[in-house]
């Protein structure tokens, strides 16, 4: 029997020792609970998701731009950008549109439902680097969702940044997200520009494309080259135009950041669903600077 090979149990199964390099983190989810559900529009809801264990909750730290995977047994697992401020740790806010299998089911669940949370995953917006600079936060449609976490973070540390512009466009007034917070944001000395493609009867704000807002902003400045950073989130066609415009206005490509959308299954750079060449959107992204995006075939 001496030739019976020893079984090498290479795995630390202790969830408490969960670190990035811990193999056990694969398929390991933190038990969490939906503590509130707040409808934002006809299709989007804001979910408050709290990691149940207080220690795990407090240990959960993320950077704006990162995402988590939510899991519902038998239904699936899906990635969501975190919309809350990092200071809240594992008491997360996720803005979710009911659009696919997972989100349609999530749309039906009640407060108190248990979900699994894993993450945080992916790259983040380099807010430290941006300190002392002017910021352009440009969001189209659902793009406001990944933008909200850096925005809240900036507001909490408002004095560390120069001029801050938020430009947000939606198809119609009914599709605008976080409307209840606009006033609060403006109190922090923010230039908030909102535009819709199609107005309704009650709409008194701007109509038109977000690029028009941006053009006005660019015209107010001689050059964006020196002390400006931009974060652009939205559908690929939108950030393609916006980034082009910014580049022409002199903003260096490595000072523009975008968040890419791809089909992610594992969130851990293993399933290849979100792979673009050598790049995994879930590992190397979702936040990329525009220079990297330019070098990715098929990214946009």
């Amino acid at each position: 029997m001496q030739n019976k090979l020893a079984f090498l149990d290479i795995l630390e199964k202790n969830p408490a020792s969960r670190r990035k390099e811990d193999p056990g983190s694969f398929e390991y989810t933190l038990p969490a609970e939906i503590t509130s559900i707040y409808p934002l529009t006809a299709t989007e809801k804001l979910y408050q998701i709290q990691i149940i264990d207080p220690i795990q909750r407090n240990d959960f730290s993320f950077r704006p731009g990162q995402f988590v995977m939510l899991e519902l047994p038998g239904i699936g697992e899906a990635p969501f950008s975190i919309s809350s401020s990092p200071v809240r740790h594992g008491d997360l806010e996720l803005c979710i549109r009911a659009v696919g299998n997972f989100t349609n089911f999530l749309d039906r669940v009640e407060r108190g439902t248990k979900v699994g949370v894993s993450g945080p995953f992916g790259t983040h917006f380099p807010l430290e680097k941006m300190q002392g600079n002017d910021l352009l936060l440009i969001g189209g449609g659902l793009g406001i969702v990944p933008l909200r976490s850096p925005l809240l973070s900036v507001l909490e540390n408002r004095s560390r940044y120069g001029r801050v512009d938020i430009m947000y466009g939606a198809k119609s007034p009914a599709e605008l997200l976080f409307t209840y917070q606009y006033e609060e944001w403006q109190r922090f000395d923010i230039n908030l520009g909102i535009t819709v493609d199609r107005a309704d009867k009650k709409w008194q704000g701007r109509t038109g494309l977000i690029t028009e807002l941006l053009k006005e902003r660019i015209n107010q400045t001689v050059s964006l080259r020196e002390n400006t950073y931009a974060i652009v989130c939205g559908p690929p066609v939108m950030f393609h135009f916006v980034c082009k415009m910014l580049t022409e206005a002199g903003l260096p490509m490595q000072k523009m950041f975008v968040s890419l959308e791809r089909r992610m299954h594992c969130g851990r750079g293993k399933c290849c669903r979100c792979n673009i060449g050598s790049t995994y959107t879930c590992l190397d992204g979702p936040v990329f600077d525009y220079w990297s995006v330019m070098n990715l075939k098929e990214a946009i």
Binding site: R108, V109, E110
Partner: peptide
């Protein structure tokens, strides 16, 4: 045959 069906709290 048996009682009310539900899944993850959804009746």
């Amino acid at each position: 045959m048996s009682g009310q069906l539900s899944y993850l709290g959804i009746p």
